[in-house]
Design a protein around this nucleic acid. Structure first.
Lengths: 197, 197
DNA sequence: TTGATATCCGGAGCATTGCTCCGTATAGTT
DNA sequence: AACTATACGGAGCAATGCTCCGGATATCAA
């Protein structure tokens, strides 16, 4: 499912064209109406039927993944760079988390979609996890060599959750994320009964 | 809307009975199928029509609030007690947050419903905020007299968000919340540009 | 150029969900 | 027993994710 956006060999030209139009339309709609905009809206904007949309992106989540794949990859690649160029690993971790938060908060509704109680967003969740957890793990180990009190997965997912509803006026996800990482870095007394998996 | 659950004077007896049956049914359904279970399911279990359900609880959120009101109140009342009986305010804060997390994680889907991108859950959100933010604020001020880097509202909402998807096997909301509060308590260098409203 | 056909398209339609509407039943009163 | 304010029930509406399939069309061989 996940490579629905590759150029594709031997595809009919109209198929390729429609796929691109869908991608463009989705990107535009997501910006205007948030990531949770109705699929119909995307199809309409692309000038394409529902069938066409679902043939190229079997699931809503697949469409979302396709639209944001580049940016997720960029975030993943930023990890090693930060680790190499930051004064300290701790700062590298903070910076990387900040980038991640910025990304999620910018795309309205992405954080929401990333979880959304049910398994309807499993594909989205999986892609983010597969791509980013290893990077986060490296940063975490570098920043807290003695072993952090939480796993990279838990941290990443936690930060993702913090970004939900980032549009609200009095809610400050970026600050929360920073404070959370502060807590990870101090590895205070509460670590006594911790040492995550 | 919010006092739909009071005994009610001058109501017909069948109305009172149905309201109670709805409350009981909702509690049971929420335990079995999560807080996001379809409303129809609650009505059916209560042996009552949709019209009856919506007359007593004009919105899905109202029903949820009614079911959990007692427990939210209990959490709110636990704040001052903890502050009085804990060795330090910092521990009081940690304990209180732990209680809140426990509550949210236990009720499957409650944390999800508490936010849920849209405004469909505004009533739920409001009730929790009105009832708990003041308590959290007192604890926060006691624990960090010099002023925390985040507001009580942001902290509370952040913790709520951390609890989303608490059912997942490798995700540890309780640990995250503890670490987050650790971060608040150390009030490290990142506070330099902070001092939230 | 002209079929033949594998491939793709479009949008009506299904199932689910929150919520509304309104004709009917009934509790409480006289 | 009759009467009326009150409450009941469930069909129905709108939105949404996703499926289905008859019809169009790009591509290629002759």
């Amino acid at each position: 499912m996940t490579d629905a956006h590759v150029p594709a060999r031997g595809k009919r030209r109209d198929a390729v064209r429609n796929q691109q139009q869908l991608l463009d339309a989705a990107a535009a709609v997501f910006v205007e109406s948030g990531v949770n905009a109705p699929v119909r809206q995307v199809a309409q904007r692309a000038g394409v039927g529902m069938g066409t949309l679902y043939r190229h992106f079997p699931t809503r989540a697949d469409l979302v993944v396709a639209v944001y794949r580049h940016q997720v990859d960029a975030a993943a690649e930023a990890g090693p760079v930060l680790l190499r160029e930051s004064p300290t690993p701790a700062e590298a971790l903070q910076s990387w988390i900040a980038i991640f938060v910025e990304f999620l908060v910018t795309k309205h509704g992405l954080a929401d979609a990333l979880n959304g109680d049910a398994e309807d967003s499993a594909a989205l969740h999986r892609y983010f996890v597969d791509r980013l957890v290893p990077v986060c793990s490296d940063l975490l180990e570098a920043a807290v060599p003695s072993g952090a009190s939480i796993s990279a997965y838990t941290l990443l997912r936690g930060v993702g959750n913090l970004c939900i509803g980032g549009a609200a006026p009095d809610y400050e996800p970026a600050r929360l994320a920073r404070v959370l990482v502060d807590g990870v870095l101090v590895g205070s007394g509460s670590t006594s009964h911790a040492r995550g998996r």
